[in-house]
Design a protein around this nucleic acid. Structure first.
Length: 140
DNA sequence: TCAAAGATACCGT
DNA sequence: ACGGTATCTTTGA
Protein backbone atom coordinates (compact mmCIF):
# COMPACT_ATOMS: atom_id res chain seq x y z
CA UNK A 1 0.00 0.00 0.00
CA UNK A 2 1.41 3.36 -1.05
CA UNK A 3 0.19 6.86 -0.35
CA UNK A 4 0.23 10.14 -2.22
CA UNK A 5 -0.32 13.59 -0.74
CA UNK A 6 -2.73 15.52 -2.94
CA UNK A 7 -3.94 19.08 -2.38
CA UNK A 8 -7.32 17.74 -1.27
CA UNK A 9 -6.31 14.82 0.94
CA UNK A 10 -4.28 11.66 0.99
CA UNK A 11 -4.68 9.00 -1.68
CA UNK A 12 -3.75 5.41 -0.87
CA UNK A 13 -3.26 2.88 -3.60
CA UNK A 14 -2.15 -0.67 -4.26
CA UNK A 15 0.67 -1.17 -6.70
CA UNK A 16 2.36 -4.49 -7.22
CA UNK A 17 3.33 -6.81 -10.04
CA UNK A 18 3.50 -3.71 -12.23
CA UNK A 19 -0.24 -3.16 -11.95
CA UNK A 20 -2.43 -0.78 -10.02
CA UNK A 21 -5.12 -2.61 -8.13
CA UNK A 22 -7.13 0.23 -6.69
CA UNK A 23 -7.20 3.67 -5.12
CA UNK A 24 -8.86 4.93 -1.96
CA UNK A 25 -9.35 8.57 -1.08
CA UNK A 26 -8.99 9.57 2.56
CA UNK A 27 -10.81 12.37 4.31
CA UNK A 28 -7.99 13.59 6.53
CA UNK A 29 -4.37 14.45 5.91
CA UNK A 30 -1.65 12.04 6.93
CA UNK A 31 2.05 11.64 6.48
CA UNK A 32 3.55 12.49 3.15
CA UNK A 33 5.53 9.75 1.49
CA UNK A 34 7.08 10.09 -1.94
CA UNK A 35 7.11 7.05 -4.14
CA UNK A 36 8.59 6.41 -7.51
CA UNK A 37 6.12 4.47 -9.57
CA UNK A 38 3.76 5.19 -12.46
CA UNK A 39 0.77 5.83 -10.22
CA UNK A 40 2.45 8.56 -8.21
CA UNK A 41 3.87 9.98 -11.40
CA UNK A 42 0.42 10.14 -12.92
CA UNK A 43 -1.13 11.71 -9.83
CA UNK A 44 1.67 14.18 -9.55
CA UNK A 45 1.17 15.22 -13.15
CA UNK A 46 -2.57 15.42 -12.74
CA UNK A 47 -2.34 17.72 -9.75
CA UNK A 48 0.10 19.91 -11.67
CA UNK A 49 -2.56 20.35 -14.29
CA UNK A 50 -1.04 18.22 -17.05
CA UNK A 51 -2.19 14.96 -18.55
CA UNK A 52 -0.25 11.80 -19.06
CA UNK A 53 -0.65 8.20 -20.25
CA UNK A 54 -2.49 6.08 -17.70
CA UNK A 55 -0.53 3.70 -15.49
CA UNK A 56 -1.26 -0.01 -15.81
CA UNK A 57 -4.59 -0.73 -14.16
CA UNK A 58 -5.99 -4.04 -13.01
CA UNK A 59 -8.61 -5.21 -15.50
CA UNK A 60 -12.27 -4.62 -14.75
CA UNK A 61 -14.23 -7.56 -13.47
CA UNK A 62 -17.25 -7.32 -15.72
CA UNK A 63 -17.94 -6.35 -19.30
CA UNK A 64 -20.11 -3.52 -18.20
CA UNK A 65 -17.36 -1.98 -16.13
CA UNK A 66 -14.97 -2.20 -19.07
CA UNK A 67 -17.45 -0.32 -21.20
CA UNK A 68 -17.93 2.17 -18.44
CA UNK A 69 -14.21 2.79 -18.09
CA UNK A 70 -13.96 3.46 -21.78
CA UNK A 71 -16.89 5.82 -21.70
CA UNK A 72 -15.45 7.78 -18.83
CA UNK A 73 -12.08 8.25 -20.44
CA UNK A 74 -13.90 9.82 -23.36
CA UNK A 75 -14.88 12.78 -21.20
CA UNK A 76 -12.21 15.43 -21.75
CA UNK A 77 -10.42 17.24 -18.95
CA UNK A 78 -12.46 20.09 -17.54
CA UNK A 79 -15.78 18.88 -18.92
CA UNK A 80 -18.65 17.12 -17.18
CA UNK A 81 -21.45 14.83 -18.29
CA UNK A 82 -24.66 13.85 -16.56
CA UNK A 83 -25.47 10.32 -15.49
CA UNK A 84 -28.33 10.33 -17.94
CA UNK A 85 -26.26 11.37 -20.96
CA UNK A 86 -23.52 8.90 -20.30
CA UNK A 87 -26.04 6.17 -19.63
CA UNK A 88 -27.57 6.83 -23.02
CA UNK A 89 -24.29 6.50 -24.88
CA UNK A 90 -23.67 3.22 -23.07
CA UNK A 91 -27.23 2.03 -23.63
CA UNK A 92 -27.90 1.53 -19.97
CA UNK A 93 -29.90 3.11 -17.16
CA UNK A 94 -28.72 6.13 -15.19
CA UNK A 95 -29.17 4.26 -11.97
CA UNK A 96 -27.03 1.36 -13.13
CA UNK A 97 -24.35 3.82 -14.08
CA UNK A 98 -24.23 5.36 -10.65
CA UNK A 99 -24.08 1.96 -9.07
CA UNK A 100 -21.07 1.07 -11.19
CA UNK A 101 -19.31 4.37 -10.64
CA UNK A 102 -19.41 3.84 -6.91
CA UNK A 103 -17.80 0.45 -7.41
CA UNK A 104 -15.03 1.86 -9.58
CA UNK A 105 -11.66 1.02 -7.94
CA UNK A 106 -9.81 3.86 -9.66
CA UNK A 107 -11.30 7.20 -8.71
CA UNK A 108 -9.58 10.24 -10.29
CA UNK A 109 -7.50 8.13 -12.70
CA UNK A 110 -10.77 6.96 -14.21
CA UNK A 111 -12.49 10.34 -14.03
CA UNK A 112 -15.67 9.30 -12.26
CA UNK A 113 -15.87 12.77 -10.71
CA UNK A 114 -16.75 14.29 -14.09
CA UNK A 115 -20.18 12.73 -13.97
CA UNK A 116 -22.85 14.86 -12.31
CA UNK A 117 -26.56 14.52 -11.71
CA UNK A 118 -29.03 16.23 -14.02
CA UNK A 119 -30.13 18.61 -11.28
CA UNK A 120 -26.78 19.44 -9.69
CA UNK A 121 -23.75 17.71 -8.28
CA UNK A 122 -24.38 14.01 -7.89
CA UNK A 123 -22.97 11.83 -5.17
CA UNK A 124 -19.47 10.54 -4.72
CA UNK A 125 -18.28 7.36 -3.06
CA UNK A 126 -15.57 9.03 -0.99
CA UNK A 127 -17.62 12.09 -0.08
CA UNK A 128 -18.76 15.00 -2.20
CA UNK A 129 -15.94 17.18 -0.87
CA UNK A 130 -13.53 15.34 -3.11
CA UNK A 131 -15.82 15.66 -6.08
CA UNK A 132 -16.31 19.37 -5.55
CA UNK A 133 -12.60 19.99 -5.08
CA UNK A 134 -11.65 18.01 -8.16
CA UNK A 135 -14.20 19.69 -10.39
CA UNK A 136 -13.27 23.07 -9.07
CA UNK A 137 -9.62 22.29 -9.69
CA UNK A 138 -10.21 21.18 -13.28
CA UNK A 139 -12.34 24.12 -14.23
CA UNK A 140 -9.84 26.80 -13.41
C1' DT B 1 -32.03 -18.12 -8.49
C1' DC B 2 -34.09 -14.04 -6.44
C1' DA B 3 -34.50 -9.91 -3.88
C1' DA B 4 -32.73 -5.49 -2.72
C1' DA B 5 -30.04 -1.52 -3.15
C1' DG B 6 -27.71 2.33 -5.79
C1' DA B 7 -23.37 8.43 -6.85
C1' DT B 8 -30.59 8.75 -11.25
C1' DA B 9 -34.37 10.66 -14.34
C1' DC B 10 -38.86 11.92 -15.44
C1' DC B 11 -43.68 12.72 -15.18
C1' DG B 12 -47.80 13.50 -12.60
C1' DT B 13 -50.12 16.21 -9.19
C1' DA C 1 -41.83 21.38 -4.88
C1' DC C 2 -42.83 16.54 -3.85
C1' DG C 3 -43.66 11.68 -4.52
C1' DG C 4 -44.03 7.69 -7.15
C1' DT C 5 -42.32 4.83 -10.87
C1' DA C 6 -39.23 3.30 -14.57
C1' DT C 7 -34.81 1.21 -15.20
C1' DC C 8 -30.18 -1.90 -15.15
C1' DT C 9 -26.18 -3.94 -12.83
C1' DT C 10 -24.14 -6.05 -8.71
C1' DT C 11 -24.07 -8.51 -4.69
C1' DG C 12 -25.46 -11.36 -0.94
C1' DA C 13 -28.66 -14.90 0.88
Amino acid sequence: MYSFQSPFGVIHYDWHEGLCHGLTLQQSDMMHAKHDNPVSAWLSAYFSGTTQALPALAPAKTNFQRKLRHGLCAIPYGKVKTYGELAKTLSTAPRALGQALGANPFPIIIPCHRVVAAGGLGGFHYGSDWKKSLLNFEQL
